[in-house]
């Protein structure tokens, strides 16, 4: 088993790591880089808890090999706030009580941010379908949808 050396940009900072060929990006982020805000709920792309962006594209990090991200720009929940200033989505999730246990929250926030970049004014239906790959078992999604709508409105006004 030959290890692979990878250089990438993670949350805007240069990062290097060595991983085994079969290790996923999720394994690398959590176990080698200490970015445990990225969660594993299933490991098969069915729950979205491990959502990150790779070159701006929303993906499940459990379905990407660590070796694939050479030279890529990766965004995780840890890079969402601007130092101590929360992203409007993060603040909106707290204000709307859009999390209960919070374990799906990082993935949902990363996914919602990707949505608002693409579509700053999504309808409720668009939000629900965009987030269909992010399972939440606590909230029934109601307050999550509301939080995304509120943040979108605020960001459009800003």
């Amino acid at each position: 088993m030959k290890s692979i050396h990878v250089a990438a940009t993670i949350n805007g900072d240069p990062a290097e790591f060595v991983c085994e060929p079969q290790e996923t990006l999720l394994d690398v982020l959590r176990n080698r880089l200490g970015l445990t805000g990225v969660k594993e709920g299933c490991g098969t792309g069915d729950c979205g808890a491990c959502s990150v962006t790779v070159n701006g594209r929303l993906v499940c990090s459990c379905l990407v090999l660590g070796g694939e991200v050479q030279g890529a720009e990766i965004g995780t929940i840890e890079g969402m706030a601007d130092a101590d200033r929360l992203h409007p989505l993060q603040q909106s999730f707290i204000d709307n009580a859009a999390l209960q246990c919070g374990v799906c929250t990082p993935g949902i926030l990363v996914a919602a941010e990707a949505l608002l970049k693409k579509n700053p004014d999504p309808t409720e239906t668009e939000i629900r379908y965009w987030l269909a790959g992010n399972l939440c078992r606590c909230t029934g999604y109601d307050k999550i949808v509301q939080a995304v709508q509120d943040a979108a409105q605020q960001m459009r006004g800003a």
């Binding site: 959590r30 707290i94 919070g102």
Partner: peptide
């Protein structure tokens, strides 16, 4: 009333430690 939860920030920035998050 509906104040913000005390663990809210930790949970929206990915810092809250769940079962698999420690070594």
């Amino acid at each position: 009333t509906r104040p913000p939860r005390p663990d809210g920030v930790d949970k929206v920035i990915g810092r809250a430690l769940y079962g698999a998050d420690v070594s």
